[in-house]
Design a protein around this nucleic acid. Structure first.
Lengths: 209, 209
DNA sequence: TGAGTATGGATAGCAAAACTATCCACTACG
DNA sequence: CGTAGTGGATAGTTTTGCTATCCATACTCA
């Protein structure tokens, strides 16, 4: 497949494709002559992924570099760790983290019985989020409140990854779907929460009259 | 209070403050001479809010324009609508929306018994999120699955806005807290979900051995 | 076979966003 | 009185994410 066809099937301008190649987001085609290279299905897939992450999830090219590094680097580790690494690559380094928040997270994870690594997806960004909360929100979040959030997250996870879930054939596909699922489902959850808040506000105010 | 003090107490450089004023995010000080103006506590508050929304939530200045418009524009509408408007201003216009997705949202809201406006916070962005899902995720989301998400969102909302919740004294404070709470708590929820996913992956893989 | 278009690779240019710096006429303060 | 600070305007800077141009070569098809 030539670059023009790659461009046509993915709807991405040729200069943009060249740019992604320069930035290392997309592999070079296999060269067939000094100025000729061949692109295949894997390029189409990758390019589609890049476009979704850029346009739907609004990830920066710098973050995408991390993501493709995680995808292309299926080292000899357990499958679960892969997913953790891929997901972690989605959030470009978190803000400042306080000791207190880090303790809270450790405590929470312990009490929930989760076995997660300290540098896995969500761990540091949760600590950063709690630090921001500490700093800018009037009342501190108690461990009990955090536990409630944690159990809701558990409920979400067990609903989203059913008991009979099977990892895809290829590890690469598994990672791709983990990444894609994360960025596609998060907006759904957040929008629903906002909607639920609006409804609850309305309800409580109506009750009061 | 002079601008230098405003700068010192909020840690924002003077040129940046001037920039925010130019952009309409911050009110001008009350002039006391041709080149002298007075800033007060409300300026400090607003500036702090701006910094949190910019640095923690990474909102664009354009979006902030919407937010402050919502905050400064407490028209004669019900309190709940205010909150809905303020929250809506947080998500700068959503991507493409399909008919199907819009129907799904209407259906869902109906079945959940929510009474929310079609142009309130979350409604359009949920439709956009579902459209993206339709387009980029292999299996479509059934209404039952959506309902499950919806009920989890309800649980979240009723936990976060307790029965005895009281709107703050001033409407402006209420809106500010609604906005601030939204951007501060969303990362907590998303991080926890990612953590829960990692744990569940690990668990399922462990079970399989 | 040769005219015209396409290709890969490099380099330069561009537009938006979010500041940042400079300037100027003035004022406030010690 | 003089030095530092101020409000307002205008211009410059940096980063990001593309686009556009160039050139030597190669493919395409009349």
């Amino acid at each position: 497949m030539k670059i023009s066809e790659l461009s046509r099937t993915t709807g991405t301008p040729i200069p943009t494709i060249k740019y992604y190649i320069r930035e290392g987001l997309l592999a070079r085609g296999t060269p067939t002559a000094t100025n000729q290279a061949d692109y295949d299905e894997s390029h189409v897939q990758r390019l589609r992924l890049i476009r979704v992450l850029r346009e739907v999830a609004d990830l920066s090219v710098a973050t995408l570099t991390q993501v493709v590094a995680a995808l292309d680097h299926p080292e000899a580790r357990a499958r679960a760790d892969h997913v953790a690494t891929a997901l972690r690559s989605l959030s470009p380094e978190p803000g400042p983290i306080s000791e207190r928040s880090l303790d809270s997270v450790a405590n929470l994870v312990d009490r929930l019985g989760w076995e997660v690594d300290e540098d896995c997806a969500g761990y540091q960004s949760l600590a950063a989020a709690l630090t921001a909360l500490e700093e800018h929100w009037p009342s501190p979040l108690t461990l009990d409140q955090l536990m409630t959030y944690g159990r809701i997250a558990e409920r979400l996870a067990s609903f989203e990854i059913p008991e009979d879930w099977n990892p895809s054939e290829s590890a690469n596909d598994a990672l791709t779907y983990a990444v894609l699922g994360t960025v596609l489902f998060e907006p759904v959850i957040l929008s629903l929460r906002r909607l639920a808040h609006v409804d609850r506000h309305r309800r409580l105010i109506a009750d009061r009259l």
